[in-house]
C-alpha cells in the first residue's frame, strides 16, 4: 500500500511538473464545449429534445466523453515508461506489480477528476446549471469509467507497444461507442437500429445517468445500471491490467 502511494506521488509529481499534459487532455473537450455546443442551440428548440437547453444537454455527455478518451489514451504514457526504461528500473526493485499497477491507474484517476472539475467550472460560466450532490455522484461514476479505460489502455500498451496501432485500436472502438451512446445528439433522434445497438453500449447508460444526476434526479434506472456496469468493468479491467503487469511483459 505504501508502495502504491509512493508510485502515485511520483506520477503526480511528474504530471505537475508538466501541466501541459492535463491541459492537452482537455483541449478537445473544451473545443467541443465552445464550438459544438452552440450548434445544438437551434436543435434544442425541436420537439422531443430531452433537456431544457443545449448546454444542459451536452455537458453531462461531454464529461463522460472526456473520461472515455482522456483515460483511454493513457496507454501512451506507459509506452513512454517502457521506452525510457523507467518501468524496468522499478521492476527490478522488490516493489509488487500490484502496487505499480494501482499507482499508475490512480494517477490517471486523479488527473481525470481534475480535468472534469475544470470542465464543470468552465461550463458553469457558459450557463450550465447543476446539482452539487449530483456532480459528486457523477464524479464517482467518472472515476469508475477512468479506471476501466486506463486499465484497458495500459494493458493494450503492454501487449502492443506500438503507438500507432494503439491509437488505431482505441479510436476504432471508443469513437463508435461514444457516438452511439448519445453524447453528441439525443438518441431519440437516431434510427431504430442505432437505438437498439446502443442498448449494448455501456456508455449509453453512463451518459443517461450523467444527464439525470446533474439535474438532481437520483432515481432513474440508468443510474443504477451505469454504476453496476462500471463497477464490474472497472474491477475486471483493473484485474486484467494487474495480471498483465505480473506476467512481466514489458
Amino acid at each position: 500500500m505504501r508502495d502504491t502511494f509512493l508510485i502515485l506521488k511520483n506520477e503526480l509529481l511528474v504530471t505537475l511538473r508538466n501541466p501541459f499534459w492535463i491541459v492537452r487532455g482537455i483541449v478537445q473537450p473544451v473545443i467541443y464545449l465552445l464550438l459544438f455546443a452552440p450548434f445544438l442551440d437551434g436543435i434544442a428548440n425541436l420537439p422531443g429534445f430531452p433537456a431544457k437547453s443545449a448546454i444542459q444537454f451536452f455537458v453531462p455527455g461531454l464529461l463522460i466523453m472526456n473520461a472515455m478518451f482522456s483515460a483511454g489514451f493513457e496507454g501512451f504514457s506507459l509506452m513512454d515508461k517502457v521506452e525510457s526504461g523507467f518501468l524496468e528500473r522499478l521492476r527490478v526493485t522488490p516493489v509488487s506489480r500490484l502496487a505499480l499497477a494501482l499507482g499508475f491507474v490512480f494517477e490517471t484517476s486523479v488527473t481525470l477528476i481534475i480535468q472534469s472539475l475544470i470542465l464543470v467550472l468552465l461550463s458553469l460560466f457558459l450557463g450550465f446549471q447543476s446539482n452539487l450532490v449530483g456532480i459528486f455522484v457523477l464524479l464517482v461514476l467518472i472515476l469508475l469509467i477512468g479506471i476501466t479505460m486506463s486499465s484497458i489502455s495500459f494493458t493494450l500498451a503492454l501487449f502492443i507497444r506500438e503507438g500507432g496501432i494503439l491509437a488505431g485500436i482505441i479510436n476504432t472502438f471508443v469513437l463508435p461507442l461514444m457516438i452511439i451512446s448519445g453524447v453528441m445528439l439525443p438518441l431519440d433522434f437516431a434510427p431504430g437500429i442505432i437505438q437498439a445497438i446502443s442498448k449494448f453500449d455501456p456508455f449509453t447508460y453512463a451518459v443517461s445517468a450523467s444527464r439525470s444526476l446533474v439535474t438532481g434526479v437520483f432515481s432513474g434506472g440508468s443510474i443504477i445500471s451505469a454504476f453496476i456496469i462500471f463497477i464490474v468493468l472497472a474491477v475486471g479491467a483493473l484485474v486484467w491490467f494487474i495480471r498483465a503487469m505480473r506476467e512481466a511483459v514489458a
Partner: peptide, 18 residues
C-alpha cells in the same frame, strides 16, 4: 534476488522531468 541486486539498464530509466 531483487532485494539484493542492483541493475542499471542501457537506458537508465530516469524520469526526466523529476
Amino acid at each position: 534476488i531483487r532485494k539484493r541486486i542492483g541493475y542499471v539498464s542501457q537506458k537508465g530509466g530516469m524520469e526526466i522531468v523529476a
